[in-house]
Computed example of a mutant assay.
Amino acid sequence: MKTCLVVDDSRVIRKVARKIVEDMGFACEEAADGQQALDYCRKNMPEAILLDWNMPVMNGLDFLIALREEEGGRKPIVVFCTTENDMSNITQALRAGADEYVMKPFDGDIIESKFAEVGLV
């Protein structure tokens, strides 16, 4: 079973995303900030990561940059799920290694279509 790591400082968003990805057949793990996510990835690299941008401790962009430098860190498909909708932010995320970008609020159809676009489902 493929694993998806949901990284968001909002417990509500994590729970909503968990339900979506579990309904798609993924095992789901959660992290409340980029540092927790990086610690998780160093132990168990997931196949997919849903990533928020604005979080305490380590934000999503810093996490993504650090992840891509880790051994095996180029493997996970990373989908940013954020309220950051400025084109410069989207470009910055894609240049840092994000595979896709989704605006909040999102739903199951949006996540499923993005996962399909990047070959996860």
Rank of each mutant, 00 (worst) to 15 (best):
N44A: 13
L64Y: 14
K43M: 03
I90P: 04
P46E: 06
A48S: 05
M45G: 01
N44T: 14
C28P: 15
G60Q: 01
N85F: 13
M45K: 00
T83M: 09
D86S: 10
P56E: 10
S88F: 04
P46K: 06
V78D: 03
A37P: 00
F26C: 10
R68I: 01
D62G: 07
R74N: 04
I49P: 05
D39R: 14
C81A: 14
E47S: 12
L61G: 12
E29K: 09
N89E: 10
Q92L: 11
C28R: 14
C28F: 14
I77T: 15
I90M: 09
L61Q: 11
E84N: 12
L61Y: 08
L64K: 14
K43A: 07
I65S: 03
F26W: 12
N89L: 00
S88I: 06
T91G: 01
A48Q: 01
D62P: 09
E47T: 08
A48W: 01
E71I: 06
A32Q: 15
E84L: 05
D39A: 12
D62F: 03
L38R: 08
D39W: 03
L38E: 06
M45Y: 00
I77N: 11
T82D: 09
G73D: 07
A32K: 15
P76N: 08
A32M: 15
E69H: 01
I49M: 08
R42F: 00
A66V: 05
D62E: 14
G72A: 10
F63S: 04
I49W: 02
P76L: 02
N89F: 08
K75R: 13
G34A: 13
E69N: 07
P76G: 07
L61I: 14
A31W: 04
N44D: 13
E70V: 09
Q35N: 10
P56N: 06
R42C: 01
V57S: 05
E29H: 07
L51E: 07
E71H: 02
F63M: 10
E84T: 03
D86N: 04
D86A: 09
E69R: 01
A66P: 05
N85I: 13
D33R: 02
P56K: 07
G73M: 02
P76K: 07
C41F: 06
I77F: 11
E30Y: 06
P46H: 04
Q92V: 00
E30H: 08
D33K: 04
Q92H: 07
T91H: 08
A37M: 00
I77H: 13
D52C: 02
E84P: 01
Q92S: 11
L51Q: 05
L38F: 07
T82H: 07
E71L: 04
R68L: 00
F63G: 02
P56H: 05
K43Q: 06
A66N: 14
L51S: 05
N85S: 15
A37L: 00
D39T: 15
E69F: 00
N44R: 14
M87T: 12
G73V: 03
T82A: 10
F80G: 09
L67G: 03
L50T: 12
L50R: 06
T91V: 13
